[in-house]
């Protein structure tokens, strides 16, 4: 399915999706599955989907979302990560962090949050799956608040002291990324002096150099993301 097709289908043909949440329906809790979901109503909690999530213009999602693809024409409050693409149509209203290898934002879409275009870490996914498994076992749902433990990722880079940081923070974040990159050559020189021409030193240098080559690419793709320094 091409990107433009999925954007179009956000507006038309509701019959493709097998699961539909109608306008007057409200779901609170954890939702997971392997088929497309089309949301005209409200979902609160957590969504884990191995398919496409369509949020229609009147749809509201107050949840952390992980899906293969996400097409938003409605409202999402929460972090969204997609294995494929995230598409924000013109009517989309999104507050939260987006993480997907491909992101399309149409003119007119409103969005506040961070964007990361790196693919999700494998261990992070595993941890998430593990956590989901643990929660699924042995406990029945008792209330909406309990079903929404703050995801670890949100606390890492979206909030501080429970408050979402203002946008200007991104500048200092960029400094934090830039500094080690500038400092690195000096460290390399020291290492070279210490070990002279020994083979080990060469090997160590080679590793560092390969890291150095990789770093600018990472920065260019996910501008605000600090990772593996």
């Amino acid at each position: 399915m091409s990107q433009s097709e999925s954007t179009h289908s956000a507006v038309g043909s509701p019959d493709e999706a097998t699961t539909v949440v109608a306008p007057g329906t409200h779901i609170a809790g954890r939702l997971s599955g392997q088929e497309d979901i089309r949301v005209h109503g409200t979902i609160e909690g957590r969504i884990h989907l191995a398919a496409t999530l369509y949020v229609e213009p009147e749809g509201i999602i107050a949840a952390d979302v992980h899906a293969d693809d996400v097409v938003v024409a409605g409202t999402i409050v929460g972090n969204v990560s997609a294995a494929g693409s995230i598409v924000l149509a013109a009517s989309a209203r999104v507050v939260g962090d987006l993480r997907a290898p491909r992101l399309v934002v149409a003119p007119g879409a409103a969005f506040r949050g961070q964007v990361s275009m790196e693919p999700p870490d494998e261990d992070e996914l595993e941890a998430e799956a593990e956590a989901g498994r643990g929660r699924r076992e042995g406990r029945q749902y008792t209330g909406a608040a309990q079903a929404r433990p703050a995801p670890p990722r949100a606390t890492v880079y979206a909030t501080q002291n429970g408050v979402r940081l203002p946008p200007q923070r991104t500048a200092s974040r960029r400094d934090a990324v830039a500094k080690p990159a500038l400092a690195r050559p000096r460290l390399d020189e020291q290492a070279g002096d210490l070990y002279g021409d020994a083979e080990e030193a060469d090997w160590g240098d080679g590793v560092k150099r390969s890291k150095k080559v990789a770093r600018p690419r990472v920065l260019a793709r996910g501008k605000h993301k600090v990772e593996r320094i």
Binding site: T18, V21, A22, T25, R30, L31, S32, G33, E35, A147
Partner: peptide, 15 residues
């Protein structure tokens, strides 16, 4: 509202 066959919901549905 339709909840498809592969979908699992743990929580509350009101509508």
């Amino acid at each position: 509202t339709v909840i498809g066959s592969s979908i699992l919901i743990d929580g509350e549905i009101t509508g």
